[in-house]
Design a protein around this nucleic acid. Structure first.
Lengths: 146, 146
DNA sequence: TCCCTGGTGAGACATGATCTCAATTGCGGT
DNA sequence: ACCGCAATTGAGATCATGTCTCACCAGGGA
């Protein structure tokens, strides 16, 4: 198991949640796919790997992980099904092409400073963030000059 | 009609879409509510204001506005219904409390520089962005010390 | 090892979004 | 101002997705 994965398990335990088979299995699946999965993808994979785990538990786990800022649901393709992204180290950043739905990930965000400012200004305790840019990818931009 | 609203109508027209009654009505509703609406909220309001507009058109319009970066769906309360946020001037920023779902909006993001860097690096044309921080709001942080 | 409470699984159910297709309407051209 | 046509719409059936209930089970502290 990767260090990142251990960190996540740790976070579950620290928050007082039991390390059940369902939760660990689903967490592992998310890890292995490295980031972008729709709920349908997760359901399918769970069914393939551990069919004894019920649908309800999958949704419950995804909700729980979201509350713990381990993952975050976002809209990528259609507007009806969430795509969950892993938040390794608490954050994730990507560009979504609004024409072809391609996703381009990038690393740097330089948001540490802003994060601190916000924590002081609003007296909140922040555990993660997601930054999404929207626009046209190189292919689509080339085809649609303006 | 506000300048912002005119800008959005302009954007619709420029992209070659017809300014139909359904689209203009829905856009106006989004404007008037100033930002956060779930699809259910929009449906309800449409039904109150212009009951002749069908459900399908509402979803079609929301999808269209999303593609044009006028709005952006995001998950705030549960993970099953999207909340649409207006992207005035192309961007929006907020903090979501992962415990009580309170949303705190803030203005500054200082992301112009990063946006330019990304446009050059990936040869994309960006039209908007959404920045979400997750964590505990002041109330919830106070109750859950650690 | 025991116990208790949080968590689980099955499946019925509710809600939310999509699809189809004939009818309508914006809007460019004349 | 009018025409014509492609884009868009509205109704409702249909489909998909997530939720709820409840009896049962299992993780983990004592």
């Amino acid at each position: 198991m990767s260090d990142q994965a251990n960190l996540r398990v740790q976070r579950l335990r620290d928050a007082g949640y039991k390390l059940t088979n369902a939760r660990l299995t689903i967490l592992t699946i998310l890890e292995q796919h490295g980031g972008h999965m729709t709920s349908a993808d997760v359901l399918e994979e769970v069914d393939a790997v551990a069919p004894e785990i019920g649908r309800a538990s999958v949704f419950r786990s995804l909700d729980l992980f979201t509350r713990l800022s381990l993952i975050r649901p976002t809209y990528i393709n259609d507007s009806s099904t969430p795509t969950y992204v892993l938040l390794p180290g608490g954050h994730h950043h990507h560009i979504i092409c609004t024409n072809c739905d391609r996703v381009i990930e990038f690393e740097d965000c330089h948001l540490e400073k802003l994060e601190h400012e916000l924590e002081q200004k609003f007296r909140v305790r922040l555990t993660g963030h997601l930054l999404e840019f929207y626009g046209l990818c190189d292919n689509c931009a080339a085809r649609q000059p303006d």
